[in-house]
Nucleic acid binder design. Structure first.
Lengths: 201, 201
DNA sequence: TCATTCACATACGCCGCGTATGTGAATGGC
DNA sequence: GCCATTCACATACGCGGCGTATGTGAATGA
């Protein structure tokens, strides 16, 4: 039984570390996750962690990058299967709110991430989600579907609104009912952007 | 020279601790703020801190409560001086975005707060800001100024949008220009809520 | 085959937190 | 006005987590 080549072993080590850290960060949170503990859980030591990721922070970045990539994939799949583009956009927004309800995403990406790494808009990875939002809005604005405004600014506002809606929903006694109200309100906001709903001005 | 009564000394101690902690949290951040350091800076020790606030977390709560109260006062003053109520509401929203640009507010309330204390919607204090937003929206909905939707949900979404706009503005190379774009986009969202701007539906 | 690189493990010291304990000053009843 | 009690803090101790410096064995390449 020949050993795997070195490059594969390295990749496997990185994946083990990211996976173990992801579980730890997602459950007890970044601050309370002991590097000794979750590296041991992965059958490794802190030495491997420092070698590959520099420090705890670097590992968090890698974990977030992974989660963000998954989120982006899921969102693209959703918007792709809609009838028309605006509907796809709306679906994507609603799906984003639902995704942000997942404890792992909420804890790592929405709470600990900003605290440790700073504002998400400065993350290289966050461009994935924000970027596609912006691009969609730009096209809608260009073709007159929505009112004219800076697409990136609209995207940021929308993103913040959705994100906070998720935090709110997840921390309320009755998430089901609250979710309905939030989705309804989000639709209201989005409808307000459509030129066909605007009368004067 | 008679000493001050004990109750005043206690209040003074608490204020000293809160003030010192507020400065430390606002500059180096919660995680990197050494309790030994900033209690010493206040001429005290960690003993006083644990006696009054239980732990570091409790002190953060006190600091946030103080900042939140100040924010609410400032916001009320702004909305009070506007011509009509809707204009006052819009002014308040824009002022909120600007306030959230202040480094101390951003770091303590918007970044470290959620990470350490959990979602702001679960803080007893946050009701100050969210509560007044909700109340305003409820009245606008009742009198038909804005479209019908759950006021609290709208308030949460709005709050999230404004908050993220601030984070975005503060972390961009050119805050001035970005601020203009964000404010413009925020107006777009708010205008979209007005029934007088809605045609069909 | 041997020197080199490199992926990790091991070992050490420091710092920060929480707690248990000590102390002196202010209170309150007689 | 004296004394017991409370209480607001300070001091002392131990523990765990992080970062770094150093060691080691296996894979590479000439």
């Amino acid at each position: 039984m020949a050993h795997k080549p070195r490059s594969e072993m390295i990749a496997e080590t990185r994946r083990k570390l990211v996976t173990a850290a992801r579980r730890a960060f997602g459950t007890v949170g970044y601050a309370d996750a002991s590097m000794d503990d979750f590296t041991a859980e992965a059958g490794l030591t802190r030495g491997a962690l420092y070698h590959h990721f520099g420090d705890k922070r670097g590992l968090l970045e890698a974990v977030i990058a992974e989660i963000d990539a998954e989120m982006n994939t899921r969102l693209c799949a959703i918007s792709a299967k809609a009838g028309n583009r605006w509907q796809g956009f709306v679906d994507e927004c609603l799906a984003y709110v639902e995704m942000a309800l997942e404890p792992e995403i909420q804890r790592i990406v929405l709470r600990d991430g900003p605290a440790v790494l700073g504002d998400p808009s400065t993350w290289p990875t966050q461009n994935a989600c924000i970027g596609s939002l912006t691009e969609s809005l730009r096209r809608f604005a260009d073709e007159g579907t929505i009112v004219a405004a800076d697409p990136e600014a609209l995207a940021r506002l929308l993103n913040g609104a959705m994100l906070h809606a998720s935090l709110w929903i997840a921390n309320v006694p009755d998430p089901e009912a609250t979710s309905k109200k939030a989705v309804q309100a989000l639709r209201t906001f989005l409808d307000g952007l459509l030129t066909e709903n605007r009368g004067s001005r």
